[in-house]
Amino acid sequence: MKQIDQNFKELMKSYQPEKSPGDFTVNVMNRIYAETNRISEYKPVLNKWFLRIVYAIIGGFVGYSMFNTGTESASPGGSKFFSWLPKVDLSAAADAGDKITGVLGGLPQYVVVIFLSATFLLLLDQWILRRKQVL
């Protein structure tokens, strides 16, 4: 290095550069932690519309099973009340329901356990999401 540069370098040792604010490192690290949390923010596996459709199908199936079993109504008065309404032929749906019930009834036990576990995990997934949103 040239003498002239060396001399100026010596002079510049007396230079006092601007200091960053005292809480600078804390602020930067807070931003980095916030950034990292945002990146790893929890997202449900399945979106809410898909789950609503699944719930509707399950709900519909359960409802149909409940109201389509037995030959007599639990409340005869109600039955009379609705007797004037035109009857809908649900025999096709009933056949389909029977078939589904038959298929489900024939499933091995471990498949049912897997199915129930998956349902439980989906519900857990939704529950965690709700808690995250509240926090």
């Binding site: 550069p17 601007e18 200091k19 960053s20 604010p21 600078f24 490192t25 930067v28 690290m29 980095i32 932690y33 990292t36």
Partner: peptide
């Protein structure tokens, strides 16, 4: 992540100084 704070601590004044020289405003810097 915490290891990054060492790097921030080491270079904070220099990066801030450079920013201040360029922008001439403490908040922007």
């Amino acid at each position: 992540l915490s290891a990054f704070s060492y790097l921030v601590e080491k270079y904070r004044d220099m990066v801030y100084g450079l920013s201040l020289k360029m922008l001439k405003n403490t908040e922007d810097a």
